[in-house]
Design a protein around this nucleic acid. Sequence first.
DNA 1: CGGCATACCTACCGAGTGGTAGGTAAATGC
DNA 2: GCATTTACCTACCACTCGGTAGGTATGCCG
Lengths: 200, 200
Amino acid sequence: MSDSKSRIIAVATRRFAVDGYDGTSLAHIAGEVGMKKPSLLYHFPSKEDLREAVLKDLLERWQTRLPEVLARSHSGADRFTALYDEVHDFFEADPTRAFLVMREVVDRPRQTRERLGQSIRPWLQLLTAAIDEGKSAGRVRADVDPEAYLVQCIVMIVGSFVAADLGAEVFGGRDGARWAERQRNEARRMAQEALFLTKI
Amino acid sequence: MSDSKSRIIAVATRRFAVDGYDGTSLAHIAGEVGMKKPSLLYHFPSKEDLREAVLKDLLERWQTRLPEVLARSHSGADRFTALYDEVHDFFEADPTRAFLVMREVVDRPRQTRERLGQSIRPWLQLLTAAIDEGKSAGRVRADVDPEAYLVQCIVMIVGSFVAADLGAEVFGGRDGARWAERQRNEARRMAQEALFLTKI
DNA sequence: CGGCATACCTACCGAGTGGTAGGTAAATGC
DNA sequence: GCATTTACCTACCACTCGGTAGGTATGCCG
């Protein structure tokens, strides 16, 4: 991909995440990249095409990240922690990703659910099987609903970034950085405790 | 409040939730109400004023709902379940509320966190105290971070509505209604299991 | 060298936006 | 009965938007 194209995508990703699709104009994106609007439209024929490219870029980064972790990690609680942290780190590396995903889901529920669904279905099915296996082995609580549990884990991770400011406002006071860490740890603890029978 | 005003707020709430603030025009809202744009602007001097009124209306409904529950409910696990369900029901009664809240948080993190924070702080502080009390009594796990836990509960509830379509797509197949129920039960189970020491 | 693609530009267009000016018909208050 | 307020309207304005037309400088390929 040409340098200009990837720079446009980088800028558009951030602007879409912060100001939303409707709230971002092509002229602003172009200006931030260092060109004029028609030049941007030379690379992406329409705003909708740009949106598509931004989403595709995000999903590709996701797709290339996860397989490594699944291969690296062991089994049981180890694997769970590694995976959970990896997903969290993916969004922590660039928190605008969480906002972008949340916006896409809210802006276009129909289109996004198919696109996102297609992208994460293989992983969720794999993890569902792992949870069922854990149940048989007696490591995992019997009353876990694997599919619903996994979706809710994603909700917790993505939501924790979106709600980070809110939590810091209500409780954190001045200690914003610490709050993010507390929320991260608590979310992981909740996910763990709700899954495994034995304390880790 | 006049009939026109409340009808405008009702329509605007839904449109803001579905299409977003930037994606909704005053003319469309007015048309749906059955009047023209200038007539709407007679009731709300600016679009921003309307946004404010929509948010205020939502928060007021919230404020009037919760006290009853806190008064009604008993203590311990009972209270927890009643409260959790009540919050869930508040959003289930009109799922656009969840979308609206999520949009507000994403669209204006700074302004919203103060507004929402102010509105829920009393309840969260009250519940924080209840959790600490539960810890002393040995009902609640010692390693719970009450504040982070409560914020994460809100994230789970609101997020479960926003992500409902997504989960149904990945797993539910045709069985959409059942999926919503599964996700609700699992979220509550996760919150419960992560809080209490003894099984309920 | 000529022919062509790349990557940008200025200038412009029609549609739609939030908001205003000014008018009107009906209800309300004295 | 008359003045005022309420609640709507038509017509309009300035502006921004996504997108197009058409031009230009640069660099590559035969």
